[in-house]
Structure formats: C-alpha cells, structure tokens
Design a protein around this nucleic acid. Sequence first.
DNA 1: TATTGACCTGGAGTAAGCTCTAAGTGTTAT
DNA 2: ATAACACTTAGAGCTTACTCCAGGTCAATA
Lengths: 124, 124
Amino acid sequence: MTISEASKKYNLTQDTLRYYERIGAIPPVHRTKSGLRDYTQEDCSWIELVKCMRSAGLPVEAIIEYVKLAREGDQTIPQRKLLLTTQRKQLQKQMETIQMAITRLDYKISRYEEAMVTGVLTWD
Amino acid sequence: MTISEASKKYNLTQDTLRYYERIGAIPPVHRTKSGLRDYTQEDCSWIELVKCMRSAGLPVEAIIEYVKLAREGDQTIPQRKLLLTTQRKQLQKQMETIQMAITRLDYKISRYEEAMVTGVLTWD
DNA sequence: TATTGACCTGGAGTAAGCTCTAAGTGTTAT
DNA sequence: ATAACACTTAGAGCTTACTCCAGGTCAATA
C-alpha cells in the first residue's frame, strides 16, 4: 500500500505518516526497491494503534517508548505492560475530568434553557 | 485574595492566572488602589470554571468567546447555550474516543499478563 | 526524450497554551 | 531610608505535535 493509500485509509496526511515514522511512533515502514514506502498489514496496524492512542490524548513520547520496547523483543514485556497500565490510568483520570466538565455544562445549559423560557437567569 | 493565594487555591501559576485574564478567558479581575489584583469570590468562580473546562480539553478560544458573550448581557443567552452544547458534544465524543483506547489498552495489557505467566505472547 | 506526477529527505515554520524574563512599582520590615 | 519582597506589564521563549517547503529521484506517459 502506497503512502497516499495509507493516508486515505487512516485519514492522516502523508506528512503525518512520515512524521510518525521519523520520530519512531511507528517502526520503519517496508520500502519498494526504489525506496518508496509500501505499507504492509503490520505497518498498517501500527498506524492504527498510534492513531487510536493519539486521538485519545496519549503523548507521542509514550507511544515512541512503547514502540522502542516492542522492537527490543519479549524481554521488555513487563516494561510494556507497565507503560500501558500507566497510560490507562491517565486516560481513566481524563475521562473523570471530562465527566465533571460535562456535568457542569449540563447544569449551566439547563439554567440557560430555563432562562430562555422564564426570562430569568438564576445565579451564575 | 492576592494572586499568590489564588494561585495556591487553584493550583495554577500566577503566570497562568495573568495569562487567562490577559487573553479574556476570565473577565478583568478587581484591583487594589495600588493596582494589585484582588480576586473576589466572583473572580474565583471564573477561575474555577476555566480550570474545569481547560482540564477537560476545551479550547481556550471557546472559553474566551463564552466570557465575551457573558459580559455582553442577557441577550446573549441563546448564543451561550449553543456554545456550551457544542462543546458538550465535543467532550462526549472525546469520552467515547478515550473509552475505545482504554478498551484496546485493556486487551493488550491482558495479553501481556498472559505472556508473563505462560511465556507466550499471542498475536500483537 | 521530455515532462508529468507521486514520491523522497532534511529542515524550517506554525498553532496552541502556557512559561519565563526584564524592568519597574508599591508596601513592609530593619 | 534602604532593603526586601510581592506584585505589575510587555514581550520573548518554550513545548508539543504536527505541517509545509525546497530540492531531488524515479517511473510512466506524450
């Protein structure tokens, strides 16, 4: 799969795909004899992983570290597990933070709804 | 309340508090005769709001717009409500994105746990 | 064979959101 | 009164994560 195909498939720009590879957020991608990127199924699953994690807000740094460990082989499994559980905890915390904000927004929105009906805006 | 007190209370640096005021993410703060910031209860509740929204990931831009509308008076209530519901939708979407990442992390973590017991790492 | 078009690299540029610095002012303690 | 200290502003600098650009290569088509 060419970079333009991969770009369309994952809705990431070609620049972003090259960037992820350059910084090590995905392992080096397979190339054709003439040096063009030729994404394999495995390359694609790395892209999908980084896309999933980035969109959730994981720092690129953490992803780079994970890829580095994964490329070092099975002896890094405990470190990888630790890394993932640490990031999982962060995401859980972030969900709670967002939930609190949503609750607060809902309260404000309901008061605005009230105000739009009654013409009275109760305490802000 | 001085800026250093407010800074401690909300665990935001003085620089950040001044920055939020400068860009309009909170309305102008009350001052002493000599020009020092003297945060009132209302100033504080604005800080709390911006902190809550920022930590959930709302763009500063949206907060600035909200503050601007709030300062324009009651006739902006419909716009404010729209702004908040729009942002609420974004947060909801972000929660779902994070939930997907967590589910994926859980799957990977469980496979690492397995591997650490059995010594076999099933497909990555 | 000349040109088009997709790709390549290295490096510079950008946007968001702070964070830091310099130079100055006002109040308080010695 | 002089030093120390907390505050002020304007503006520069930093970090993260891309995003863009210039100059070059390669394969295919007119």
